[in-house]
């Protein structure tokens, strides 16, 4: 086997701690430690996703991960699955092609708020409209992290980013409402702190037939740094203190504003809608 991998990443040999024996087979250990910043929530999602895939009841080789560009786009590369890291914003249509060509596959798209809602926004609403039988995990960190902190479609009004130095003047997307309105079969919002709930939600997503969307709130130090919110720990504490779980919340009222006074989480929507193809 090639040894370039280790040179390219860290140069050290890493063994996965014992706690991850169950998902040892699913993580590309030779690529750890991963590239994400200290305090990034993506590592947590990676673990949960691997566990959920392991326990989904669907054979592992039938799982396919499709990711676009951005920090979140790297998640597929750490999962020892058939993974496709494609162009910016095009993970959803690529996944639609995979699923249509082979309906036996369980196709999951993981992308950031920029990848799925900005450059890939059109694909997102149309896949939801058709109710394509794929899963979409949107990791919402409120900013473009990898490119250095520009505002994204979910950046709250007032937030400072490298491209909104005087405060952002646009309104952000309310992701669950958007997904619901566009026609998704399953819509949930959790944070990386709500691990049990998020894990159950991921399992549910694999069971749902139709377009399943989970918005995962995740800390990003690029965002918190610029807005004097402290570090990732402080952000996590805000989520811990201010979030409420309300499965029956009125989706129109669950915007997340800059103050983050109210963060509503829950499994909001589960409905049966005809799927676009058999």
């Amino acid at each position: 086997m090639s040894t370039e991998v280790e040179v390219a990443t860290t140069g050290i040999k890493v063994e996965l701690p014992k706690a991850y024996d169950d998902i040892k087979d699913l993580i590309r250990i030779d690529r750890l430690p991963h590239i994400w910043c200290p305090g990034c929530g993506l590592g947590i999602l990676l673990k949960l996703l691997a566990r959920a895939i392991k326990n989904s009841g669907i054979p592992i080789e039938k799982h396919v991960i499709v990711t676009g560009i951005g920090c979140t786009g790297r998640i597929g590369g750490y999962l020892r699955l058939d993974a496709y890291h494609v162009t910016h914003g095009r993970a959803i249509p690529f996944a639609v092609g995979l699923k249509m060509a082979n309906p036996e596959l369980e196709v999951t798209v993981v992308g950031g708020d920029g990848d799925i809602l900005a450059i890939g926004g059109n694909h997102f609403i149309h896949a939801a409209r058709r109710n394509d039988d794929i899963n979409v995990i949107i990791v919402n960190n409120f900013i473009y992290g990898m490119t250095g902190g520009q505002y994204s479609p979910t950046t709250p009004k007032g937030a400072k980013t490298t491209t909104s130095p005087y405060g952002h003047f646009e309104n952000p997307f309310n992701v669950p409402l958007l997904a619901y309105a566009a026609g998704a079969s399953y819509v949930a919002r959790w944070s990386v702190l709500h691990q049990n709930e998020l894990y159950q939600s991921l399992l549910e997503m694999f069971r749902v037939k139709g377009f399943a969307v989970i918005e995962v709130l995740s800390p990003c130090i690029i965002y918190t740094d610029r807005n004097a919110m402290g570090d990732a720990v402080d952000f996590m504490k805000v989520i811990k203190e201010r979030s409420t779980i309300d499965h029956n919340a009125n989706l129109a009222d669950i915007d997340i504003d800059f103050s983050m006074k109210k963060i509503v989480l829950g499994n909001f929507v589960k409905r049966e809608r005809p799927v676009s193809y058999g």
Binding site: Y84, I92, P93, F94, G97, A101, N102, N122
Partner: peptide, 19 residues
Amino acid sequence: IQMEDEIASIAAVLGASAA
């Protein structure tokens, strides 16, 4: 499938071929 635009079309084509 008739996709939402040409970008999606070629992406879906590549996806299907990957399958």
